[in-house]
Lab assay of single mutants.
Amino acid sequence: EKTLKIVADSEEEAEALAKELAEKYNLEVTIERNPEEEGKYVITIKIKP
Score class of each variant (00 low, 15 high):
residue 13 E to M: 09
residue 25 Y to R: 02
residue 19 K to V: 06
residue 6 I to R: 02
residue 27 L to C: 13
residue 9 D to A: 08
residue 10 S to L: 01
residue 25 Y to Q: 03
residue 1 E to F: 01
residue 48 K to S: 11
residue 44 T to E: 03
residue 40 K to A: 07
residue 39 G to P: 06
residue 15 E to G: 04
residue 3 T to W: 14
residue 7 V to P: 10
residue 2 K to H: 12
residue 13 E to K: 07
residue 36 E to W: 12
residue 39 G to L: 03
residue 40 K to P: 02
residue 28 E to M: 13
residue 12 E to V: 09
residue 47 I to T: 09
residue 11 E to R: 15
residue 14 A to D: 00
residue 34 N to D: 15
residue 7 V to A: 09
residue 29 V to C: 10
residue 18 A to R: 09
residue 34 N to I: 14
residue 32 E to L: 06
residue 44 T to Q: 04
residue 5 K to P: 03
residue 35 P to M: 13
residue 41 Y to P: 02
residue 45 I to E: 01
residue 25 Y to V: 03
residue 8 A to C: 15
residue 28 E to S: 08
residue 1 E to G: 11
residue 29 V to W: 06
residue 7 V to L: 12
residue 18 A to C: 04
residue 38 E to V: 04
residue 10 S to F: 02
residue 5 K to L: 12
residue 12 E to R: 07
residue 7 V to I: 14
residue 2 K to Q: 12
residue 26 N to D: 12
residue 46 K to E: 06
residue 9 D to I: 04
residue 43 I to G: 00
residue 15 E to W: 15
residue 15 E to I: 15
residue 18 A to S: 04
residue 27 L to F: 12
residue 37 E to I: 12
residue 16 A to S: 09
residue 20 E to L: 12
residue 10 S to E: 01
residue 46 K to H: 14
residue 41 Y to W: 15
residue 25 Y to C: 13
residue 23 E to F: 06
residue 25 Y to N: 04
residue 38 E to G: 12
residue 45 I to Q: 00
residue 7 V to C: 15
residue 47 I to V: 13
residue 45 I to A: 08
residue 36 E to F: 11
residue 43 I to S: 00
residue 13 E to W: 09
residue 11 E to I: 14
residue 34 N to P: 07
residue 3 T to A: 07
residue 31 I to H: 01
residue 22 A to N: 09
residue 42 V to Q: 04
residue 18 A to Q: 05
residue 2 K to E: 12
residue 27 L to Q: 09
residue 30 T to G: 03
residue 39 G to W: 05
residue 40 K to M: 04
residue 42 V to T: 07
residue 1 E to W: 01
residue 37 E to F: 14
residue 36 E to L: 13
residue 6 I to W: 15
residue 13 E to P: 00
residue 32 E to F: 04
residue 24 K to Q: 06
residue 33 R to H: 07
residue 3 T to L: 13
residue 10 S to C: 03
residue 3 T to I: 13
residue 30 T to I: 09
residue 13 E to G: 03
residue 48 K to V: 11
residue 24 K to W: 06
residue 35 P to G: 09
residue 28 E to L: 09
residue 12 E to D: 08
residue 22 A to E: 10
residue 2 K to I: 15
residue 14 A to K: 01
residue 2 K to V: 15
residue 40 K to S: 10
residue 31 I to N: 00
residue 21 L to H: 02
residue 9 D to K: 07
residue 12 E to T: 06
residue 23 E to A: 08
residue 4 L to F: 10
residue 16 A to R: 14
residue 22 A to S: 13
residue 22 A to F: 11
residue 13 E to F: 06
residue 39 G to S: 05
residue 21 L to Q: 01
residue 19 K to Q: 08
residue 23 E to I: 07
residue 21 L to G: 00
residue 47 I to G: 05
residue 37 E to K: 09
residue 6 I to T: 01
residue 41 Y to E: 00
residue 33 R to G: 05
residue 35 P to Y: 12
residue 47 I to D: 04
residue 10 S to Y: 02
residue 42 V to N: 04
residue 31 I to E: 00
residue 3 T to V: 13
residue 18 A to V: 09
residue 6 I to L: 05
residue 22 A to M: 14
residue 11 E to N: 05
residue 14 A to H: 00
residue 35 P to A: 12
residue 6 I to F: 14
residue 42 V to S: 03
residue 26 N to Q: 13
residue 22 A to P: 00
residue 26 N to R: 06
residue 38 E to F: 05
residue 3 T to R: 06
residue 19 K to N: 05
residue 33 R to C: 05
residue 4 L to K: 05
residue 20 E to Q: 12
residue 32 E to V: 08
residue 21 L to V: 03
residue 10 S to R: 02
residue 40 K to Q: 11
residue 2 K to P: 10
residue 17 L to V: 10
residue 42 V to E: 04
residue 15 E to D: 06
residue 20 E to H: 13
residue 33 R to K: 14
residue 44 T to W: 03
residue 46 K to Q: 12
residue 35 P to V: 09
residue 34 N to Y: 13
residue 37 E to S: 09
residue 26 N to S: 07
residue 27 L to E: 06
residue 28 E to V: 12
residue 37 E to R: 07
residue 49 P to Q: 13
residue 32 E to C: 08
residue 7 V to W: 12
residue 44 T to V: 14
residue 19 K to E: 03
residue 20 E to V: 13
residue 40 K to E: 06
residue 41 Y to S: 02
residue 49 P to W: 09
residue 24 K to M: 07
residue 13 E to D: 06
residue 28 E to N: 08
residue 38 E to H: 11
